[in-house]
């Protein structure tokens, strides 16, 4: 028996919004420690890794490890049927071929359940090694989303250059060129407005804008985003989900021929 409950459907809706543009389907691996999903996008350029800890749920029970392959478009249709303040419970029997989403209104007067067929997905699982990154940047998630959106107008690619002075995002194309420089902040009133740069070595990396923009669909989940970079390895874009877990996106760099 598997059962996981969140007192508010908003978080689950936001999580799905953060992954459904990149992934058509995904396997939710459930164990007593929580729920994990790892999947590459269709073109195998990026990887999504979602971790939801069992202690972050309002109720969590998982008697046996369970892998549930779900079509994320179908899941999105179902979650649209939940009000933001509904309690959502995800339920499945052991070895079941369906999963049930139950939504309960705050006053308990409306209870709906939606059963969805599970899929057998043959997805490759990649081992991601613990890495010490040359540069780690923490910045407001809204600011990162804004920069990715703005620079995508100028080029398919953005160059991220990080030094101890700051981080610079650049794009150049037919129209011209664009540069956005952010300096590390000192003495900001609110922690969520801070820009913090931890640098061991400077890095310059090139990434495809369309994936960065897809990652920023996670912005509603977190005030801050963390970018971890080292030369010639994938960028990690991490959004923490308060008291529940995190979503990490790995993006393969563009490398000069």
């Amino acid at each position: 028996m598997f059962e996981a409950r969140l007192n508010n459907a908003t978080t689950l809706k936001k999580i799905l919004d953060a992954i459904k543009d990149l992934l058509n389907e995904g396997t939710f691996d459930c164990s007593d420690s929580g729920i994990q999903l790892q999947a590459m996008d269709n073109s195998h350029v990026s990887l999504v890794s979602l971790t939801l800890r069992s202690d972050g749920f309002d109720k969590f029970r998982c008697d046996r490890n369970l892998s549930m392959g779900m079509n994320l478009g179908s899941m999105a249709k179902i979650l649209k049927c939940a009000n933001n303040d509904d309690t959502v419970t995800i339920k499945a029997q052991d070895n079941a071929d369906t999963v049930t989403f139950m939504f309960e209104s705050q006053n308990q007067e409306k209870v709906s359940d939606y059963e969805m067929k599970l899929m057998n997905l043959d997805q490759e699982h990649l081992g991601i090694p613990e890495t010490d990154y040359s540069c780690v940047v923490r910045m407001p998630a809204m600011e990162f989303a804004r920069i990715c959106r703005d620079l995508a107008q100028f080029s398919e690619s953005v160059v991220i250059c990080c030094t101890k002075e700051g981080v610079k995002f650049s794009a150049s194309g037919d129209v011209g060129s664009a540069n956005v420089k952010l300096a590390q902040t000192f003495n900001v009133d609110k922690e969520e407005e801070a820009i913090v740069i931890e640098m061991q070595e400077p890095v310059v990396l090139t990434f495809a804008c369309r994936y960065l923009n897809a990652f920023t669909k996670a912005t509603p989940l977190s005030n801050q985003v963390q970018l971890s970079m080292s030369a010639d390895v994938p960028l990690v874009v991490e959004y923490r989900i308060a008291e529940l877990g995190h979503i990490r996106y790995y993006l393969a760099p563009k490398i000069e021929d």
């Binding site: 195998h44 990649l126 994938p234 790995y250 393969a252 563009k254 000069e256 021929d257």
Partner: peptide, 14 residues
């Protein structure tokens, strides 16, 4: 021009 790499070339299959 820079060439897009694939994510699978950086991580080992499990």
């Amino acid at each position: 021009t820079a060439k897009q790499t694939k994510i699978g070339s950086f991580f080992e299959k499990e």
